[in-house]
Amino acid sequence: MRTRALVKRIIRQFIRDKRTLAMMFLAPLFILTLVNLVFSGNEYEPEIAVISDQVQLTELLEKTDEAFITYENSKIAAVDIEDEKLDAIVKINPPSTTITLEGSNPTANKAVMVTVEKALKSLNPENNQQISMKTEIDYLHGSAEMESFDYIGPFLIGFFIFFFVFLIAGVSFLRERTTGTLERLLATPMRRWEMVAGYVLGFGVFTIIQSAIIVSFAIYVLDIMMAGSIWFVILITLMLAVTALSLGTLLSAFAKNELQMIQFIPLVVVPQVFFSGLFNIETMADWLQPLSYLMPLTYGGQAIRDVMIQGGGWSQVYDEVLILAGFSLLFMVLNVLALKKHRKL
C-alpha cells in the first residue's frame, strides 16, 4: 500500500527531526504554563483607608476585610494615597459616603470597588436592623475559585494545537515540493489522494500524541478546570489538529517557500483568535459576525469549553466535531485538486 509507505516515511523523518518534535510537543506546554502564571497570579490586595466619626463603623469594616485601615486624620491619608501606599480612601460621614480612588491602576481600582461593595453589603443588614440575611452567590458554571485561565485555557489549548500543527504540516508539505521529492513522487504511480491521505495519517499519529500530552498537561499539571471527560477534549483537539493539518498542507500549495508559508499566519491563524470565542462575538459589528462560522477554531474552542467548563458530553459536542471533520475533508479534497497543478492524473 503506497499510502502506508508514505506514512512510515513521514514518521521516520519526524522522529529524526528532534527540534520540530519539541516544537510540536513542548512549545505549547511552555506557552500554556506561561499564560497560566500570568493569569492566575495572586489577587490584588488593595489598601483602603477608612475615615469616619463613627468608631464603631470603622472597627466593623476593619473586621470584615484586612484591606481596611482606620485613619484618624484625612491629611495623613491624603499623603499616603499620593505616595501610592493607599489605593483608596473611604470617608463615611452619614449620610454621605465618598470614595477617593488612587486611580492609576485599573486592576487596583477594580479590586477596591469589589472590596468596598462586599464590605458595605455585609454591613448593611445590621445597620438597618433587619433580619440577618446572608448574601449567597451562586455560579451556574465555574465557581468563586475560577480563575481567568480556566476560562481562556480551553481556547488556548485549541489555538496552540491548531497553530503548531498548521505550521509544521504546511512547511513539511511545502518542503516536499521545494526539494523536488514531490515531483519524484509524481513520477511514481502514487495517486494524488494517496499522497494527501498519507500526509494526514502520518502527521495524524503525532497529533494524537500531541493532543494527549497537551490536554493532560493542562489538566493534571496546570490544574485547569475540568468538568467533563478528558477523552472528549482529546477527541476535539485531535479533530482540530487534523483540520489544521489539512489546511496547512492545502495552503502550502500557494506558498513558494517557508517564509511565504509563515506569511499565512497573520492571514489565516491570527483572525481565528478574534472570532473563535476568546472575544465576544455578539459585540462585534453585525456584518463581521458571520465570519466566525468560517473559522474552524470557532467550533473547536466552543466544543472544548463545553466539555471543560460546562461538563458537556457527546450530545453537546458532536455537531462541532462533525463540522471539524467536514472542514478536514473539504481541505483534503481541495488539496487533491490543488495537486493537479503538478500532475494532471
Partner: peptide
C-alpha cells in the same frame, strides 16, 4: 530527476 529528490533526514 535532475535534482536529487531524496529525504535527507533518512
Amino acid at each position: 530527476a535532475q535534482s536529487d529528490a531524496l529525504y535527507t533526514e533518512l
